[in-house]
């Protein structure tokens, strides 16, 4: 059973990592314009930073 003591914390840690990543994207306003993000990839010029 010793592998459980190792794997379960790893699984939970990875889950926490995902949660933290989500919180970070939320705070960075990455969900403010979902349609826009999909459309921006079609823009001709390569600038992805707003001027």
């Amino acid at each position: 059973m010793s592998y459980l003591a190792f794997l379960v914390p790893v699984a939970i840690l990875l889950g926490l990592l995902g949660l933290a990543a989500f919180m970070w994207t939320l705070r960075n306003e990455q969900y403010e314009d979902l349609d826009g993000a999909a459309a921006r990839i079609l823009m001709d010029d390569d600038q992805d930073e707003p001027k």
Binding site: E32, D33, D35, G36, A39, P50, K51
Partner: peptide
Amino acid sequence: EYARANLSM
């Protein structure tokens, strides 16, 4: 100095 369009809104 900055202009950013938002398509959803």
